[in-house]
Design a protein around this nucleic acid. Structure first.
Lengths: 203, 203, 203, 203
DNA sequence: GATGAATGAGCTTTCATTCAT
DNA sequence: AATGAATGAAAGCTCATTCAT
């Protein structure tokens, strides 16, 4: 049995002898799908098991609890955001770094819309789960990385607004007409522009 | 017993025959508090009843279901937003109307932060409840009211960004240092400014 | 709903308007019977519910947990032993007091053989339940009450032997032939005699 | 694979062809430890397997069921008591034989306190397992071996008391202060003395 | 000599809800 | 206006056990 901190069982085995079972990965996939569709609370292990055509204990063979499934999804699928943050931490705090951070965040977000939509829509539920805390920490950190220390309140809020626009806007994009790529680009440039305004306070 | 479409006990009864009991109102208050604190799913009727020092069936005397409690809260406490929307519908679509709509929305939001934070944090849960739909419709309508028809994509998104910034920013304000009123004003002006930019597309 | 420390719900109501339901008492009775027959762990709430012709949640209406059922049984049915101890505590530590304590303990034991047999046969299970601790404390206290402080080891052990003989012997009595009353009397006098020997250490 | 009636791996194999594996023995050791610590029901095969750093099926390779592990422990570790009984069966029923039987029983008990404490504390659980019956039979037989046929009731009970004192006293000894050997000797002599009293009924 | 994967049965507990009083 | 008592459904989880490899 693998632990939750093992960043994803089968994934790690790639390259060695073909992993004999892909159940772990299938659980992650199906669970994310159902969590995103119905919410975390309202998705029962029975449903997950049925969707996978296995029994509940089969799930418990791979994960120690329902929460652990969620954690493994977050740690697997949510990695790109964590990487973007790590990258930004190691860079000088220039405007270009910030722009690039937004760009990378937007990319990561788009690669895993379902996960992030899910995290957003289940805040109350995830609040006391580890995952919820980690997700919040990530958001907070990105906010700090694009805001210079000592910036006046208005400009701090503007940076926050840029991030909120980018983050929540991403989920709202499907409601707008137009080419998907074009919409993404437009949203990113709005957010970036907003963030830039905060860097050069008007006199 | 009142039905779910009765626009909401306390509010409606004011001024009519002295309300026969304040239990209905107390249920709303306590329920909102608990919903906001723990989430809708994770708050059981048992908890609500205990907090009120009554029994569960006492709650069922006043409401037909758990969902109806939520609906009555939304219809009672959430009225100001509905009113702001109604007002804007009856106005000419000038820039000033839009500014005023944002102002009113911001005010309504601030008067009932707990309700709106709750609505936000329980999206997945409320999705298939009536309340969730109504809440979403409200947001969509405000978005439309501040966006002129035929506006290019970028400016549509900018309007959305303004609304997102105002809405979600309100919940994030406590994380920032400074005087509460000052923070509100700053946030509103950022959102307004953003919305204004969308009205006069640069060439 | 009554708490576990309420010494027995319905019981207390006797004398007032006939208690409308005797379910609580019936649960205690049936549970003790099944616990004694099959052990605590091996008796499921389903079985108790079925024996009572009610559903599982009906049990949870009266008790907050399986353990609480046990506690209420112990506090209700096991009271006589607690009372014997309390009585002895308030008496001078004479030989007669000790004799009387054994007498009372024997009587209490005999009034509730099933409970005590059960407690004895489920020690490992009850060890980490409150009830198990209380039961052990009772035994220890009786042991101390019949042993004078400063008594030499041998005589301490003799007192313990007296108590063990009385306690465990009671459960073994059915294996012997003879009149029930006679057997009880004989056992008590053996234990008493043993305890007396310990009071006047031989030179 | 060995059957449950094979008198018990390690013991039997000594001196024969070097035991192919010590896993069987390790399972017995660890299982007894855990059984004694937590009780039979509350100890799962998962725990045993984890403590041994093997997988559950590895245990099933050596034993056909959880119960069989217990049986093998009883038959292995509990053998001395069985031997004491067998010895006494072959002796004339003199007082000296009885004294020696108690002596041997006490010694056997002390060599395996954990097993016997466990058997005692899990009576309810073991009742319908083979082991429980065998254990009870042993106790009964010792009782019979130290009681002459035709003895009056009081003296029968006295013999039983002697055995109970010796048996249960052994588990209680740690609660008393003093040198371990000394305590054992004292307890044995009390039990022996009690048994002797039964042989020469007072007129 | 052992493992990885899985299963059927069952557990305690909680929930929203109902109904006679 | 509210209570006592109860229910059907389901939840998350654990267990002893099996079997192909």
């Amino acid at each position: 049995m693998r632990s939750a901190t093992d960043p994803g069982g089968p994934v790690a085995e790639k390259g060695t002898r073909q992993s004999r079972s892909n159940t772990r990965r299938r659980i992650q996939e199906v669970a994310l799908e159902l969590f995103a569709e119905q919410g975390y609370e309202k998705t029962s292990l029975r449903e997950i098991a049925e969707a996978l055509q296995v029994t509940k204990p089969a799930i418990y063979y791979h994960y120690q609890s329902k929460e652990e499934i969620l954690e493994s999804i977050f740690q697997g699928v949510g990695r790109p955001v964590a990487e973007a943050i790590e990258w930004a931490r190691g860079q000088p705090r220039t405007l270009e770094t910030k722009r690039e951070l937004l760009r990378r965040y937007e990319a990561a977000l788009n690669d895993t819309v379902p996960l992030f939509r899910f995290l957003r829509q289940n805040e109350a539920t995830l609040r006391d789960l580890q995952v919820g805390k980690e997700f919040n920490d990530q958001m907070t950190e990105i906010g700090e990385l694009i805001t210079d220390p000592g910036t006046p309140l208005t400009e701090q809020l503007r940076c926050m607004g840029a991030l909120l626009t980018l983050h929540f806007g991403t989920f709202a994009l499907p409601h707008f007409e137009g080419d998907a790529e074009e919409k993404r680009t437009a949203l990113l440039s709005i957010a970036t522009e907003m963030m830039e305004r905060a860097q050069t306070p008007r006199e």
